[in-house]
Nucleic acid binder design. Structure first.
Length: 275
DNA sequence: CGCTCCACCTGAACGC
DNA sequence: TGCGTTCAGGTGGAGC
């Protein structure tokens, strides 16, 4: 599911429910997620207060008052539900649950079990193997056209592959890479090392825009992505190319949107508008 | 090292 | 209705 905007939307919901609250009960119903949930997981975090909810790329970071940090990744199909009071019986994919001292229940459901939970010392965040290699956040002042051009220098991979690479820029996934390349009129098959500075100057702001718009509309959402309140996000209705194979290009209106496969994933683009 | 491919897992959608 | 096939947002390890 979730690319950066969806994770940011989930974080916003978690902030309201969790910041300043104490994790009174922690329940793990299945340990076999993408990374197994450690045996001592519950004991290490039960009773602790959540100081802050942060986001790095697609990772949710929960800072606890003991100096530990809970890292959560939603994988492809993970979602967080926030429920007040006594929750209904869990269904088969509700794997992890927190009950706070405010009687708020936070439920993690993940049918495909690609998500994971981890606990590290807050001071070790930048050494974490998952976080260490990440490139800049798209909203960082350091994410500029000159940065992007130099990060792509000599790369023979395609633009699609390069923008999916979290070491170049963190947080983009399949949908927003498709949308950003369309808006910047850059072909997904273009060799990344050949990107001109002018094209990079178009690309950087549209990446920021497309993510900001998705966050503003409540996190994109796919078929099965849900916000923490269980409502679907709205941005799915605004995709210009993603999932629109065969439709007329919204820009030139004469050519049809094509679907190709790159790195085993669908790419959608207009062959006329994107060079 | 850079790059591509594939596995991980389940469910939804579609074709016959 | 039912069965088989294909596809899905991410990540990271294998292998070239």
């Amino acid at each position: 599911m979730p690319e950066l905007p969806e994770v940011e939307t989930v974080c916003a919901g978690l902030r309201t429910a969790l910041e300043g609250a104490r994790l009174q009960d922690v329940t793990v119903r299945r340990h076999d997620l993408r990374r197994p949930i450690p045996e001592d997981f519950v004991n290490r975090i039960r009773g602790q207060k959540v100081l802050a909810i942060k986001r790095r790329s697609k990772y949710i970071l929960m800072e606890l008052d003991s100096g530990l940090c809970l890292i959560v990744h939603l994988g492809m199909s993970g979602c967080m539900r926030i429920l007040q009071g006594n929750p209904p019986p869990p269904d088969k994919h509700d794997h992890v649950e927190f009950m706070t001292d405010r009687r708020t229940c936070i439920r993690f459901a993940d049918p495909r079990r690609f998500g994971f939970f981890d606990i590290i010392e807050a001071g070790e965040l930048e050494n974490d193997p998952a976080l260490r290699k990440l490139g800049p956040e798209p909203f960082d002042p350091g994410f500029t056209a000159p940065y992007l051009k130099s990060a792509l220098k000599n790369k023979t991979a395609t633009m699609k592959a390069a923008l999916m690479d979290q070491r170049i820029v963190a947080g983009l996934g399949n949908i927003y890479v498709n949308e950003a390349l369309f808006r910047a009129r850059i072909s997904p098959t273009k060799k990344a090392g050949k990107l001109s500075l002018v094209a990079a100057q178009r690309l950087v702001p549209v990446i920021v825009d497309v993510l900001n718009e998705a966050i503003a509309s409540g996190g994109s959402s796919l078929r099965d992505h849900r916000r923490t309140d269980g409502e679907l996000g709205y941005f799915q209705h605004n995709f210009q190319v993603y999932g629109r194979a065969g439709d007329p290009c919204p820009s030139c209106t004469t050519s049809a949107i094509r679907r190709i496969v790159q790195q085993g994933r669908s790419t959608f683009y207009c062959r006329i508008c994107q060079k």
